[in-house]
């Protein structure tokens, strides 16, 4: 098994962890953490699969470089939205997650 394929498989695991966290965790900051992990998993899959025959491929690497910068812009926007929600409702949860919400940390 090549290094690329190995890390692509790790990317699949990270993608699954991020997706589960994004859907299952009620706290918005946790959702943002999960979103970042999900993105990292997708990046690993993109580069790892492109290099599964063992050669270095600059095309997916350049795409991931773009993706990382876009991911932090999305994170900053999501954080600004979450702060606005906190400002207005006093909570960091989406309305549909409220009824069974336990008191999350912090």
């Amino acid at each position: 098994m090549s290094v690329g394929l190995l890390y692509a498989l790790a990317g699949a695991a990270l993608f699954a962890i991020g997706l589960a966290g994004l859907l299952a965790l009620p706290h918005l900051l946790r959702k943002i953490l999960a979103f970042n992990i999900l993105g990292s998993g997708a990046f690993l899959i993109l580069v790892g699969l492109g290099q599964r025959d063992g050669s270095v491929d600059p095309v997916p690497q350049a795409m991931v470089l773009t993706g990382i910068v876009v991911a932090i812009a999305a994170t900053a926007l999501a954080l600004a939205l979450a702060r606005q929600l906190l400002e207005r409702t006093g909570r960091m949860q989406l309305p549909e997650d409220r009824p069974d919400a336990e008191t999350d940390d912090a």
Binding site: V3, V47, A62
Partner: peptide, 15 residues
């Protein structure tokens, strides 16, 4: 490890 020093640099600084 994946031979992508460009992304490693960006990930350390940004990620």
């Amino acid at each position: 490890r994946l031979g992508a020093p460009d992304i490693a640099l960006a990930e350390a600084a940004i990620g």
